[in-house]
């Protein structure tokens, strides 16, 4: 069955608008997050109609350029709240470095203990950096790019859905702290969530995402060798 090229982008956008409305009505609970419901609905549909997935991926390919442009656009919240990040430069850098290392190690150690294959282990090393980076870096340390990409997306989604509520429950009421955590652990998906929640949180997340991504991309291949 062929579908007109604009159908899937339109369906995706409509599902998002509907989910976003529901999210507001549900008091912004994580289970009603506007990334989650449309994704679950579309994945359900394409599990039943597997032949349609290729067309969906092809027809929504142009979303990538907007996604990439949105990442560039994170420069604006980053610039606007630069002061909040700069005021505690050392604490910010140490927190991002510490969180990044702790996150990677706590993924690798259980994987090694469970005797996962070297390809899986290498594909986990890049879990907290943004997809295009993860795929390149995972490839260079012997990982499987598609597993690395899947791990990155699931990690980001998990951080965005669980992070803000968890940190609030544990008494973290500082937007910079929450933003740094979301950007470090959840790359662009976590940052997208932070930007929705507050300007300062978004800026801290954009900074953490960039710093973590740069450091991981440069250091991981060196450490791995």
């Amino acid at each position: 069955m062929t579908t007109p090229g604009a159908l899937w982008p339109a369906v995706t956008a409509l599902l998002f608008v509907a989910a976003n409305w529901l999210y507001g009505r549900a008091g912004e609970r994580a289970y009603a997050h506007p990334i989650l419901l449309p994704s679950v609905a579309l994945m359900g549909w394409f599990s039943l109609n597997e032949d349609g997935l290729m067309a969906y991926v092809a027809d929504t390919q142009f979303f990538h350029i907007f996604l990439a442009a949105a990442v560039v656009g994170l420069a604006v919240p980053l610039y606007r709240s630069w002061g909040a990040v700069k005021a505690n430069k050392r604490a910010v850098l140490a927190a991002v470095a510490g969180g990044s290392i702790a996150g990677v190690m706590s993924a690798l150690v259980p994987a090694m203990l469970l005797q996962a294959s070297p390809e899986i282990i290498a594909s986990l090393g890049t879990k907290s950096i943004t997809t295009p980076m993860a795929v390149t870096v995972a490839g260079s340390i012997g990982g499987v790019p598609s597993i690395a990409a899947a791990v990155v997306v699931i990690t980001g989604l998990f951080a965005a859905l669980v992070g803000p509520g968890l940190l609030r429950a544990l008494g973290v009421d500082d937007d910079v702290a929450t933003g740094l955590a979301l950007g470090t652990a959840g790359h662009a998906i976590g940052t997208a969530e932070a930007v929705r929640l507050s300007r300062t949180m978004g800026a801290a997340a954009a900074f953490a995402m960039t710093a973590n991504g740069l450091a991981t991309a440069v250091l991981l291949p060196l450490v791995w060798g």
């Binding site: 995706t12 956008a13 599902l15 998002f16 976003n20 997050h33 506007p34 990334i35 449309p38 994704s39 579309l42 994945m43 394409f46 599990s47 597997e50 997935l53 969906y56 991926v57 929504t60 390919q61 979303f63 990538h64 907007f66 996604l67 949105a70 997809t131 598609s146 597993i147 990409a149 899947a150 997306v153 699931i154 980001g156 989604l157 662009a188 998906i189 997208a192 969530e193 930007v195 929705r196």
Partner: peptide, 16 residues
């Protein structure tokens, strides 16, 4: 619309 832009890559996970 950031969250909207992440939906296609998430749906594409079905492929792997």
């Amino acid at each position: 619309i950031f969250p909207l832009l992440f939906i296609p890559p998430i749906v594409a996970l079905l492929d792997v």
